[in-house]
Design a protein around this nucleic acid. Structure first.
Length: 591
RNA sequence: GCGGGCGUAGCUCAAUGGUAGAGCCCCAGCCUUCCAAGCUGGUUACGAGGGUUCGAUUCCCUUCGCCCGCUCCA
């Protein structure tokens, strides 16, 4: 058997369409970029992935509860989270060198690049018009070749006249650079590209969040956004969940649902879609200082802890590592082999300013190694932001912490406070901030920290589909070659679990017995009935959609109630009774 | 958003300034005692809009989508 695992995305996309996994959204109207629909099999697969995640993350645990919040929320949430600022920068493109850049960063970029620094040096020497002209005729040809004064002698002359007539107006790099681009141009002045001197387009709003209007009046005061991530609702509803779920820190809140991002470049099939679905968990933990007060010490990764069962003494670092392991275990359970993905620990300089650590789980897609899921240790950033912006307390009261603090005498408290203040100051925080935090801690209160495993449903599905796809070259007994396409989905996520065939459809006794068995099985498992064509063809059809087992009812079934159970991957057959078959399925499918 | 390439049936691909064809898939029927067998019949396409032309799937323009690169990426 010759196997081929390296398949292009085109071949996979073609199968997905042919068999009803994935369609392009709005296809009859020409499609719409960055939006994809799941067909009959795709939606079963998606449902299975989500249910498996939910069961593993929420139902099978005692320390995680769920939330299902709205997609449209108060716009202040996105102000507090930082999305409104970071997702909506006006962008300009250079007409000459085609670079895209944030309009508000143009002058900073110039100041930091060789062109700006070269000009600054000229100004520092006391910029005379003649020197600037010489610069345009010399150095600038390499640094800013598309600058109007470099390209065009008339513009350069006009610039010279203005520099000579009014030197006081041209004392900054920005003023001179702008003049060199605009000396002869009609109004309005253009902004020159910091990279090449070419003309930038007008800044265009580049909103990565989808905007909408709440209520019938289309007015800026009614603007709201489709959420760019599901996580923020969890923070916004944190106190409600805490108050009603009878949970205490450490515990988690999970949510699955649609999110929307106006991606610059939707690319790579469903990988980067504008409408996508997330599975996010916010797992709230005690700050390390609280752990220390309660347990007397904080377990870190240096202690090489056993990560299988959570412990009270774990600090954020261990909790983070724990969730990385949990998430990897789930991914493997869904059918992605351990060696098909990599765990990438972001380097300190790559981390967002509030993040303490972030691990990307990356899968080796046909188009490259790309992120499936991220597990971030986000400190108390999110809850603190919402506390600040909403004015509502995001603190919890931690009884064991209060009891532990009460046992300390004043001297011990002072010593502890001094230690924490020193640590905080070493991390660049203010002494006042640290003191306030410790004071709260002694009363049993703090804003919880959070570890956030955030996975993309669609990315997971794409990885599962890519991983499952295989073309096998088979040679039969007579030496005839044949290609078998198999989707090796794990039974847990396979869209159809079991297919039922009557060996012959024109023999009523077999047919009726098969229907009876099918009706029995379908009530418990996603089952599929197929009576069309030869038996081999029916097996191959199921291979292509990844059905793990096919059962065939034949004459022997009528005698001893056994049926042929054919395994997708090995193509081996065995005879089982209905009870034995159910046992086999239950064992493989239990999450 | 820019540059380049590409859009013909569900899929993979032909041909053509003058009625668009194949293989596979799919559907119905016959046949069939375990791996895409056979026979009969059937559905389905020039991405969209405009222009040139007696006539455009073919030439031109616009648009939409896909692919590659650039750019961007809490």
């Amino acid at each position: 058997m010759v196997m081929s695992k390296t398949s292009s995305l085109d071949v996979i996309a073609s199968l997905c369409k042919r068999r009803g996994f994935i369609f392009h959204s709005s296809e009859i109207y020409g499609g719409i970029n960055g939006f994809w629909d799941y067909g009959p099999l795709g939606c079963e697969l998606k449902r299975n992935v989500k249910e498996d995640w939910w069961k593993t993350t929420v139902r099978n645990r005692e320390d995680v509860v769920g939330l299902d919040a709205t997609i449209i929320m108060h716009p202040a949430i996105w102000k507090a989270s930082g999305h409104l600022d970071t997702f909506s920068d006006p962008m300009s493109t250079c007409r000459a060198c085609k670079r895209l850049m944030r309009a508000d960063q143009v002058w900073d970029m110039l100041a930091e690049n060789p062109t700006g620094q070269s000009l600054q040096a000229l100004l520092d020497e006391g910029a005379e018009a003649g020197k600037i002209v010489a610069w345009c005729k010399g150095k600038a040809k390499g640094l800013a070749p598309n600058l109007a004064s470099v390209l065009d002698a008339d513009t350069l002359n006009a610039a010279f006249e203005k520099l000579t007539a009014d030197p006081a107006s041209y004392t900054t790099v920005q003023a001179v650079y702008t003049l060199l681009a605009n000396a002869k141009s009609p109004q309005p002045a253009v902004v020159p590209c910091p990279h090449c001197g070419g003309e930038l387009t007008e800044p265009r709003p580049f909103n990565l969040m989808f905007k909408t209007v709440v209520g019938p009046i289309d007015d800026p005061s009614n603007v709201a956004y489709l959420r760019p991530e599901t996580a923020q609702a969890i923070f916004a509803q944190f106190q409600n969940v805490l108050a009603t779920s009878r949970m205490t820190v450490p515990f988690g809140i999970a949510q699955m649902g649609k999110s929307f991002r106006n991606e610059v470049t939707p690319r790579n099939y469903t990988f980067r879609s504008r409408e996508f679905e997330q599975m996010e968990l916010e797992f709230f933990i005690r700050p390390d200082e609280a752990v220390e007060l309660i347990c007397g010490h904080v377990t870190t990764m240096a202690d090489k802890p056993d990560l299988s069962v959570p412990q009270d003494s774990w600090g954020w670092e261990v909790w983070h590592a724990y969730w990385v392991e949990q998430r990897k275990a789930w991914i493997v359970a869904c059918g992605l082999p351990e060696d098909s993905f990599v765990e990438y620990w972001q380097k300190p300089e790559e981390l967002a300013h509030y993040a303490r650590a972030c691990v990307d789980i990356e899968y080796n897609f046909p188009f490259g190694i790309q992120e499936l899921e991220g597990i971030a240790a986000r400190s108390d950033y999110d809850l603190s932001q919402h506390q600040k912006h909403s004015g509502k307390s995001m603190e919890v009261f931690d009884e064991p912490l209060k009891l532990a603090a009460d046992k300390l005498d004043d001297a011990a408290k002072t010593a502890f406070a001094d230690k924490v203040i020193a640590e905080w100051c070493a991390r660049g925080k203010s002494e006042d901030e640290a003191r306030a935090f410790v004071f709260k801690l002694f009363t049993g209160k703090y804003v919880p920290h959070v570890v956030e495993p955030s996975a993309g449903v669609d990315r997971m599905m794409l990885a599962l589909i890519c991983n499952a796809y295989e073309e096998q070259k088979l040679t039969d007994d007579k030496g005839k070659e044949d290609t078998r396409i198999v989707m090796h989905f794990s039974p847990r996520i396979a869209p159809v679990k079991v297919a039922v065939f009557p060996l012959l459809k024109n023999k009523p006794e077999i047919y009726n017995k098969a229907r009876e068995i099918f009706e029995h099985l379908r009530r418990r498992y996603a089952a599929f009935w197929d009576e069309g064509g030869a038996i081999g063809r029916r097996y191959r059809r199921q291979d292509e959609i990844g059905t793990p087992w096919c059962v065939t009812i034949d004459f022997q079934t009528l005698e001893d109630d056994t049926m042929t159970v054919r395994d997708r991957d090995s193509m081996q057959q065995e005879r089982l009774t209905l009870a034995q078959l159910k046992e086999k399925l239950d064992e493989a499918l239990l999450v």
